[in-house]
Design a protein around this nucleic acid. Structure first.
Ligand code: ZN
Ligand code: ZN
Ligand code: ZN
Ligand code: ZN
Lengths: 168, 168
DNA sequence: AAGCGGATGATATAATATAGCCCATAACCA
DNA sequence: TGGTTATGGGCTATATTATATCATCCGCTT
């Protein structure tokens, strides 16, 4: 006997939003920025970026490799890692250290402080600016006499949606 | 011909403190905690912990493997990773995600929020409680509807000493 | 003695990442 | 025109990090 809806399966679209728009925006932004900066968003780099943006999950390098092979028959690990190096340097992609994986940057275009909320359930990564956190960090650095070069904060847990489903 | 002192080399002891005391305390604490908890700080686990505490740098698993071989001839990767799993579970060691390396925990004994300040120069890792940062993070989670399970903040940069030497 | 769980041994392999060398192209310069 | 450099990427190999699986050992309980 079932109720009309099955809550835990009722996920037609992970994280309701127009993802095609997401991807389109990200790629357009990337194209503009690279053009402005006089760097080359080559075919391979573009394809890798597109693959990364297929979802908001962090994606592994070798998964990208598998997925790009139909397009780039000659692709080898270095092919992917070189593209990733470029995309990261341009601030278009973040490396998620705690997963050895990569995710598209939503505030594209410049290196910046970031808070990554990583859901253990749906694996999506939400990027937030978290100004207060960064301020508190800055104060902590001042006390410690530490000169920060990178500030990546990665937190694992459950996103709103997945936590909600868990309770239901 | 030499001057009396060689400033840039004048680092007889990285981060001036009684490190033997450091190590001694860490090991004693570990022994007590494991005993209290009824878990076994076996010979291998003790040795690995001791090796990790040889410095305040984050140390790689295979480096530990090399260094433990004289003591444990049969040591294989799994030997180290198992010991590390145990030590991490007991809150005696932190994994530094952004380095794939491991460092002794100075607030030993319980899982806890941590801010790790990782020096690119001397490679030492300073662990701080950073209450303000954690509070700001908690507020950010509340806004995002995120349920955090792990909160590890890793920041790369220059420690006070190394930044000082750079200026000097 | 038999049975159990935790720890370790032993072997193999998976997963992640980089090194180094070469070649093609395009831009830039003598 | 020809040389030179910079960049991107193919290709091979290898380094580094981590886990899976099954066997064995040991202390403890029944
Ligand atoms: Zn989207
Ligand atoms: Zn989720
Ligand atoms: Zn010390
Ligand atoms: Zn330092």
């Amino acid at each position: 006997m079932k109720t009309l809806v099955e809550p835990t399966l009722n996920l037609p679209e992970p994280n309701a939003h127009n993802h095609q728009q997401c991807v389109h925006d990200a790629l357009k932004t990337a194209e503009h920025l690279c053009s402005e900066r006089g760097v080359q968003l080559t075919s391979i780099r573009h394809q890798v970026l597109e693959l990364i943006w297929e979802s908001h999950k962090a994606v592994k390098a070798y998964e990208l490799l598998d997925r790009i092979k139909p397009l780039q028959n000659a692709a080898k690990p270095a092919t992917i890692y070189r593209a990733l190096d470029f995309l990261i340097a341009q601030g278009l992609v973040h490396r998620v250290e705690s997963l050895n994986a990569f995710v598209g940057c939503r505030c594209s275009g410049h290196q910046h402080e970031q808070l990554l909320l990583i859901c253990k359930q749906c694996e999506e990564v939400e990027e937030r600016t978290a100004g207060k956190v960064m301020q508190a960090l800055a104060e902590e650095f001042r006390q410690a006499g530490f000169t920060a070069h990178s500030k990546a904060v990665e937190v694992h847990g459950l996103c709103r949606r997945c936590a909600g489903l868990g309770e239901a």
